[in-house]
Amino acid sequence: MNLALFDLDHTLLPIDSDYEWGQFLVRIGAVDAAEFARRNDEFFAQYQAGTLDPVEYLEFSLGTLASFPQDRLKAMQQQYMAEVVQPAIRPAARALLQKHIDAGDLVAIVTATNHFVTAPIAKALGVEHLIAAMPEVDADGKLTGKLVGTPTQGAGKITHTKAWLAKMDKTLEDFDTVHFYSDSHNDLPLMSIVSHPVATNPNAALKTHATAQGWPLIDLFND
């Protein structure tokens, strides 16, 4: 069996699902538009610059989620999927995922974005396994606004991927081939330890590194 790992934002989707969720909340009037948009833009700029504190950002994002009742969260999640995510899904991304699924590979999305935002996206893409930042919930299942464990970002993707595999009594070394598809240099830690890293719609920093390393480069959004 082979293993195929995928980043999500700007890799399988031509959008940043976390950022767009924030923009969606502003658009529907669920949050204070000026203040939320300011914070959201600041965090996004930090992410692009590689200076983002992932815990600070995740707890800002999860704290926003925790302010809503569960039934409203579910309704907003469904509206967001219909209006923002579903129209963004590209045929080439679906086809690449399906190629690995049809080959019998173990397929997982490994994303720094939180599980609340990404779980319905993984389902829409037909991917059973999702490794994402986990929000804490209380005894009633309500989000508390806190993060469980460490962020699934940078080297954290290695930690969480290995922990996920360990639950199945597997390691990365158990697979003949391990692909990891990503657009970002932030994912170089995990890309550097798999057998088949693939720079997918890469940003400038990753494109430069991938070219120097002789890694394949693909574009899923040029359709």
Rank of each mutant, 00 (worst) to 15 (best):
F44W: 14
Q48G: 14
A49R: 07
T51F: 13
P54Y: 08
V55E: 05
Y57M: 13
L58M: 14
L58E: 04
P69M: 03
P69H: 08
D71L: 03
R72T: 10
R72D: 15
L73W: 04
K74T: 06
A75E: 14
M76D: 15
Q77Y: 10
Q77A: 11
Q79D: 15
Y80P: 06
M81E: 08
V84R: 14
Q86W: 01
A88Q: 04
A93G: 02
R94W: 08
K99C: 05
H100Y: 08
H100A: 05
D102L: 05
D102R: 14
L106T: 11
V107C: 08
T111Q: 02
H115R: 13
F116L: 08
F116A: 03
T118C: 14
I121G: 01
A122Q: 01
V127D: 01
E128L: 12
E128M: 04
L130S: 05
I131R: 00
A132V: 07
A132G: 11
M134I: 09
P135E: 03
V137H: 14
V137Q: 14
D138R: 10
D138L: 06
G141L: 03
K142H: 07
K142S: 12
L143E: 02
T144R: 09
T144A: 08
G145H: 08
K146E: 00
L147K: 11
L147P: 00
L147G: 11
